[in-house]
Amino acid sequence: MPGRGKLIAVIGDEDTCTGFLLGGIGELNKNRKPNFLVVEKDTSVTEIEETFKSFLARNDIGIVLINQFIAEMIRHAIDAHLQSIPAVLEIPSKEHPYDASKDSILRRAKGMFSAEDFR
């Protein structure tokens, strides 16, 4: 559909993905590639990282939502992403509450208050 907005992608546990798909973000494109990844116990870190990178590379994705405990597994990839679009948003998961001190954006923001900046 030309002129439409961008999609929201999710990488998360089953309940997080189910919730967001209920909200109506789910898409399977022409190549049958989904815009979500349900992370289970046997999902490898490589698979998560590859999916995350493929979401970043897609032009039709505007926001990537990711459970914080999964974001921790691929922190290097998240920290390396500096572009505004797609925005990466860390969200809590059922078993791991949100910790602001781990959030990459807030850590970047906190980084500005170093002693060097105020000299």
Partner: peptide
């Protein structure tokens, strides 16, 4: 569960940047 997800999905939500 994830088993119930449809085989065809179309988004109902878009983000305008």
């Amino acid at each position: 569960s994830a088993l119930q997800y449809a085989s065809e999905m179309d988004p109902h939500v878009y983000v305008n940047t």
